[in-house]
């Protein structure tokens, strides 16, 4: 399973300050730490980044890829900022991943950019109708995103469908619907559609000491259904250990007594 390191986010105070002050060091350190811990992509969340968002994203892409030889997951709702990031993304270590398009008209432009820059893109199954009620509704939205991707010239193999993970503490049933959606998404195409989740959404709002437990338990269920990628915290050793163990159960890693150290 692909790990998308979530730590570089405008929501984190330290990262936000470094972004504002254009101080590369804290951002580079976080990127390197996640990469060393096994992240395949580094998520770069600059939020809406309305003012000079393009400058910020370009700077972020350059300083991170100066230190980390992995592709980035560009996470912004601002298409101008996104395009700036894509323009400067170094594809030597893999193609960029756009986070994200959805079934909302203002997000269609992300598909246009994916096609223009040969990037991969996350398709969040969220539409005008608000939060999808169940797995079936998520599949309906996914089908619309897939049809639109074809119109824009984005290959279905470059799309990661995201069922939209919701917090278990207020929407308990949704946890189950999202698991089912991961299974159903794959059946929408042959070869199976790729899937992704924002894992820590599941534990939003729960007491802090329980978050890691909830995240990692949920992860095993999603992996069992064939999840392709997760935006998660690779610096959380407990989650990583569960991920590695699940990979052993699923036959993706050959067992050895020291498998956790690998």
């Amino acid at each position: 399973m692909l790990i998308i390191g979530e730590k570089i986010s405008i929501i984190a105070k330290k990262v936000r300050e470094a972004m504002m002050n254009r101080d590369p060091k804290p951002i580079q350190e976080l990127a390197e730490a996640q990469w060393r811990a096994g992240a395949h992509f580094i998520d770069v969340n600059t939020g809406p980044a309305e003012e000079k968002g393009d400058e910020l994203m370009k700077w972020m892409v350059e300083i991170i890829q100066e230190k980390v030889h992995s592709p980035l997951c560009l996470d912004t709702t601002n298409p101008v900022a996104l395009e700036a990031g894509l323009k400067f993304h170094n594809n030597q270590w893999g193609r960029a991943l756009i986070n994200s398009t959805s079934n909302e008209p203002e997000r269609f432009v992300m598909l246009e950019l994916a096609a223009k820059y040969n990037a991969q893109v996350i398709g969040l199954t969220l539409g005008k109708g608000g939060i999808p009620a169940d797995a079936e509704e998520r599949c309906g939205i996914a089908a619309e995103i897939m049809a639109r991707a074809a119109e824009y010239g984005v290959s279905l193999e470059d799309i990661f469908l995201d069922p939209l993970i919701l917090q278990v503490c207020t929407m308990q049933d949704q946890a189950r619907h999202s698991i089912k959606a991961i299974k159903m998404f794959q059946e929408l195409n042959d070869p199976p559609m790729k899937t992704v989740v924002g894992l820590s959404n599941i534990s939003n709002g729960v007491p802090k000491t329980m978050r890691s437990l909830i995240d990692r338990t949920y992860l095993t269920l999603l992996m069992y259904e064939g999840l392709t990628a997760a935006i998660m915290n690779p610096l959380d050793k407990e989650i990583m250990d569960v991920l590695k163990t699940t990979n052993v159960f699923l036959g993706k890693t050959l067992y050895a007594h020291s498998y956790l150290e690998m």
């Binding site: 050895a256 020291s258 150290e261």
Partner: peptide, 14 residues
């Protein structure tokens, strides 16, 4: 033993 083969390689590289 496939698992021991892997384990021994790990121990040696460690």
């Amino acid at each position: 033993d496939i698992n021991l083969a892997k384990q021994l390689n790990i121990l040696i590289t460690q």
